[in-house]
Structures are given as C-alpha cells and as structure tokens.
Nucleic acid binder design. Structure first.
Lengths: 233, 233
DNA sequence: CGGATGCTTCGGTCTGGGCCGTAGCGTCGC
DNA sequence: GCGACGCTACGGCCCAGACCGAAGCATCCG
C-alpha cells in the first residue's frame, strides 16, 4: 500500500481554498502565469508563488519558463481526473439546497465549456449524444466503446485522434459525468480530438478568463449540418 | 462551477494523516468501529471521534449504530473512487526511489487483496487476464466492455451480477489501475460480483486487520480448474 | 442497580502553515 | 545602463485545527 501519508499530502495540497481555486482555473488545460493565478485565487503574487512551488514539487503542476513569465499547467490528464473526482464528490456531498446558482456567467458555462481538454456542458453532451446516435461510440454502463469503423468515420469528418499520443495510458474513449447536465459527455483522447477540431475550425471560441466557450454562427451551422444538432440546452 | 471552496473542503478532509489512514482502512468496503479506526490511525478515541464526525458530516462516511458500537464505512463507491484517484496520483507523483517496499506483510498485499469491493493484486489481474483471454470482457484503451454473451457465461460459472443494483450509476465493468501490478484489474459491479463469488466459495479469506486476502487450497484448485491460472505473481 | 465498555463533548495547549511586507533576482524595453 | 515588471525568498504575525485529559452519555452485562 502506498503510504497513507502520501495520500494525505495530496489531499492537503488540494485542501486549501487558494490552491483549489488555482487548480480549478487550470482545469481547461491551458497554462497560466503566477500572476494570473494569484488573481483568480484572490491572493498576492508572493503568496501564490509559494503555493505554486509546492504544487510543482509534488508534480501536480508542470511549469514552463518563457522570458520573464512562468507558465503553470496541470502536470497530466490524471491530475485533471483527480480534481474531477473531488469536484464530483463535492457536488454529490452537498445537500441539495438551491441547486442551480444561475448567474449570467453561469448560464454561459452551462451552455458550453471545456473540461480539461474536451467539450462539456450542453454542447458537450449534445455532441456526445449525436455520436452515440450515429453509432460511432457507445457507453455501456459507464464504459466507453468505439465502433470498429468509428475512427475511420471520424477521420472522414476531419477529426483525427492524435497518433503521437497513442502509446500513452490515457483512455481513447471515456465517459465523464457532466456537472451541469448530470449526464455523461465524451472524454479521453477522442474527446480531446473533437474539442481540438471545434476550436481549430472556429466553431467555438474561448471566453476570456473562463472555461466557458462561445458557439459561433459558423459553429451553429456546422452542428446542424454535421451532427444534426439544432438546439442546445 | 461548483464552488472551489467545496473542493478545498473535501481535500482538507483527506489531507490529514489520521483521516487519510482511516479512509484507507475503510477502502475494503467493510465497516469498522471508531475504536478500531483510532487504532489504525494511531490516535486516541476522542480525537478519532472528532475526525469521524467531520467525515460523516461531509457525507464521505456513513455510520450505522449497533448496540453500543458505531460502525463506519465509506458512504459510496464514488468515495472509494476518489480515494483511489488520490492514491494513484500519490504513487505516480512520488519520485521513483526505492519502489518495492517489500515487507512480509506487503508481500501478501501484493499477492492478493481487496480494492473496495473487488479483487486486486496479483490475483486481481490474473483473474482479469483470464476473463479477457476467455473473451468475456475486454478493455479498450481504458474502457471496459462486456461481451454480448458475457453475463450469461459468467452466470454459468455461478457468478451473478447483483440485479438489485442495476439501476445505480455504478459502471458494470471498469478497469482499475492496480498499484502493485501497474496493470488494470476488473472493477465495477462485475468486479464486485466476482469478488463476492470468491469469498462465498471460500476460495479466498480475509486476513485480519488488513485488506490482504489469503488464497485457500480450494481456491488454488478452482483457479486452475475454472480460470486456467496455475501460478500467481 | 452498579460497574465496565464504547463513544462523544468540552476545555486548554501548541504547532503547522497561510498571509503579507520587504527585499532580492532575473528578464524585457527604452 | 536604467527603470519597469514578473516572480521568488525571507521574516514575522496570526489563526485554524489537531491533540489529549477529564468528564459526560449511552449501552451492555452480571
């Protein structure tokens, strides 16, 4: 058994509001500077610096120097999964008082956002449902399956799974429980490929300082034409 | 987004050595008394009582009164998954110095143990491999698949998935990365059914105060006859 | 009923760690 | 080179919370 002290250490790293906020801010897979992270956590840069050093030492974060900036990002998809697990419990654990905390910004998040590196929210589950309806993928009791000709059919749409990452342990196709929708959306390497495709074609664009995504008119048209999705929500 | 403070709270609950030790001790799915948990954590009962109250308040634990005892167990399989996620990161995170901390007790754990409610260790992956070889189940890039006739073939062996639990969200078949073996073993409702089968037939018995399992002579024979497993390790 | 057992509550001590102000180091632009 | 900027290291303050001893409840047993 892994020493339980190691488990506690990881828990402790997450168990601090400022660090949790920073980790959450990095959940979209992008890299942010120490200053930006200090901002989202509501603390001074020098305090943030200490936190980030600890997170990096524990290999939860990876840091990349670029000039006088230091960009921090989650060290791996596994770390993102960890945060997801915690957040899932956090949501379940919470007594169901006043579930929908609907702000204007919240609405955008519910409509479309990224979850680490794949699509989530109404858009995420809609695209997932469409792929299931097409028979490209299927979910069997929480396990993801790709049809034998699934990858070829996706390639025909211009969606290519990153071959360089094939040898990693990261799952190809995996369901990920969506917070706002409470239903699974597509995750794994395939989910990342779909998300990349949407961003590259400018079907969606990132909304500043947020994981929320804006669905462009071009995107709405493509959703209708290629996935048969007329309305989201 | 779920308030990041909620995430931090969960992290904080795990991020304390005594609580982490208690949660880990409950990872085999059994229920333990407050006194026993105080023992494994190396603290006095009154301190443990405080910790347990907090864990219960946060719905990480469920408690059942029985006479003057109070039995504590993990509140759900999702909590077990959470601890698993943390432990997985803890193992990966750790610089690879002196990997195998081989004690006499550790060896037994590596050979066979429970992981929440399914088989793990050498035995866990061996049984999993056998089921894969038989074509009953398959893992596709981290996703678990059951063959169309899989459940029927398992039923023929006397292994029945609990139908009462069919409506839960818990996955039927799911790979779970094994610490000691660093390869996936079978988890999910199917994994629980297999483990239950092994225990009911007395193919394995629990070793006191541990998640480790002892493989009985009867069990070794059954492994050879029904799964074609001659040697484990 | 009285004692033993299991657990919880309360009160008080003490340490770990989060926080910021100040200062120091490296990088960029003029 | 010089100042502005981003980040990190150090020192000191302060508080949350982990811990235990003592005491209080509840339950079981003789």
């Amino acid at each position: 058994m892994v020493n339980t002290n190691r488990i506690a250490e990881i828990g402790l790293l997450i168990g601090e509001p400022a660090r949790a906020a920073m980790l959450d801010a990095l959940m979209d897979g992008r890299a942010l500077t120490a200053g930006e992270l200090a901002g989202v956590a509501g603390i001074t840069p020098q305090t943030a610096s200490g936190h980030l050093a600890r997170l990096s030492d524990a290999n939860l974060l990876a840091v990349e120097r670029q000039g006088r900036h230091r960009y921090h990002r989650l060290a791996s998809a596994e770390v993102a999964d960890l945060i997801e697990s915690v957040a899932r419990i956090a949501a379940v654990t919470l007594p169901q008082t006043r579930r929908p905390v609907t702000g204007p910004r919240d609405a955008q998040m519910r409509l479309a956002r990224t979850c680490y590196d794949h699509l989530a929210g109404g858009l995420g589950v809609a695209v997932t449902d469409a792929l299931v309806a097409k028979g490209v993928i299927a979910f069997d009791d929480g396990a993801g399956i790709v049809a034998p000709d699934g990858l070829d059919r996706l390639a025909a749409l211009g969606i290519a799974v990153d071959d360089a990452a094939r040898r990693t342990t990261r799952p190809l196709c995996r369901p990920c429980l969506d917070w706002s929708e409470r239903r699974p959306h597509l995750a794994g390497r395939l989910g990342a490929a779909v998300c990349r495709h949407f961003l590259e074609r400018h079907w969606v664009t990132r909304i500043a300082d947020s994981r929320a995504l804006f669905i462009t008119p071009k995107g709405r048209q493509a959703l209708r034409a290629e996935f048969g999705i007329a309305e989201i929500g």
